[in-house]
Amino acid sequence: MSHVWPYLPARAVNITSLVEFDRLAAEALVSHHAHGKGWRVHRVDLRERDTVLKSLDLSEALFIDCQFSGQGQQIVQATGGLCMSSGAQLPFETGARGLYTAEELYSGIWTQTYQQVPDAKIYAYSQQHAAANADSDHSALATTLHDHHIGQALVSEVYEGKFKDTPIIGVMGGHAMNRGTTQYAQALELGRMITRAGYAVATGGGPGAMEAANAGAWLADYGADEIATALQMLAEAPDAIHQRTGWARTALMVKERFPSHRQSLGVPTWFYGHEPPNLFATQIAKFFTNSIREAILLEQSNGGLVVLPGAAGTVQEIFQDACENYYAIGARVVPMVLVGRDYWRNDLPAWPLLQALAKERVMEQKIALVDTAEEALAFIQSMETLRRRTRPAKDN
Rank of each mutant, 00 (worst) to 15 (best):
residue 386 L to P: 00
residue 200 A to E: 02
residue 301 S to K: 03
residue 107 S to P: 00
residue 171 V to C: 07
residue 59 S to I: 03
residue 218 W to D: 02
residue 336 M to S: 12
residue 39 W to Y: 06
residue 101 T to S: 10
residue 115 Q to H: 12
residue 57 D to I: 08
residue 339 V to W: 12
residue 48 E to I: 09
residue 209 A to C: 15
residue 203 T to L: 12
residue 341 R to D: 04
residue 359 K to H: 07
residue 76 V to L: 11
residue 124 A to T: 08
residue 246 G to P: 01
residue 353 L to T: 07
residue 47 R to A: 14
residue 352 P to C: 11
residue 206 G to D: 05
residue 248 A to W: 00
residue 200 A to P: 02
residue 170 G to E: 01
residue 115 Q to F: 09
residue 389 R to S: 11
residue 40 R to E: 14
residue 7 Y to L: 10
residue 112 Q to E: 15
residue 371 D to M: 11
residue 121 K to Y: 04
residue 161 G to S: 09
residue 129 H to W: 09
residue 316 Q to I: 06
residue 315 V to F: 03
residue 94 T to E: 07
residue 291 S to N: 11
residue 391 R to N: 08
residue 61 A to N: 05
residue 197 A to N: 06
residue 316 Q to Y: 10
residue 321 D to K: 05
residue 227 I to N: 09
residue 259 P to Y: 14
residue 294 E to W: 09
residue 302 N to P: 09
residue 189 E to C: 04
residue 296 I to S: 03
residue 39 W to V: 04
residue 192 R to P: 00
residue 224 A to G: 08
residue 57 D to T: 11
residue 371 D to T: 12
residue 156 S to D: 07
residue 225 D to G: 00
residue 238 P to Q: 05
residue 356 A to G: 07
residue 335 P to L: 13
residue 270 W to T: 13
residue 271 F to H: 12
residue 224 A to K: 13
residue 188 L to V: 08
residue 131 A to Q: 01
residue 155 V to M: 10
residue 121 K to V: 15
residue 282 T to N: 01
residue 147 D to C: 15
residue 22 D to L: 10
residue 142 A to C: 11
residue 133 N to F: 13
residue 156 S to T: 08
residue 370 V to R: 02
residue 41 V to N: 14
residue 196 R to N: 05
residue 221 D to P: 06
residue 325 N to I: 02
residue 333 V to Y: 04
residue 192 R to S: 01
residue 301 S to I: 11
residue 217 A to R: 00
residue 204 G to F: 09
residue 81 G to D: 01
residue 66 C to Y: 10
residue 253 M to E: 14
residue 73 Q to D: 13
residue 372 T to C: 06
residue 56 L to A: 05
residue 275 E to M: 13
residue 185 A to D: 11
residue 352 P to R: 15
residue 374 E to C: 02
residue 37 K to E: 14
residue 150 I to H: 15
residue 25 A to P: 02
residue 219 L to K: 06
residue 101 T to Y: 07
residue 278 N to T: 09
residue 224 A to S: 13
residue 115 Q to T: 10
residue 357 L to R: 11
residue 71 Q to L: 14
residue 3 H to N: 15
residue 12 A to H: 14
residue 76 V to A: 13
residue 84 M to E: 10
residue 113 T to W: 01
residue 264 S to C: 13
residue 283 Q to C: 03
residue 236 E to F: 00
residue 177 M to W: 00
residue 253 M to Q: 13
residue 144 T to V: 07
residue 227 I to F: 08
residue 376 A to D: 14
residue 306 V to E: 00
residue 83 C to M: 12
residue 272 Y to G: 04
residue 320 Q to W: 05
residue 178 N to E: 01
residue 96 A to S: 08
residue 177 M to L: 12
residue 172 M to W: 11
residue 165 D to A: 07
residue 72 G to R: 08
residue 43 R to F: 12
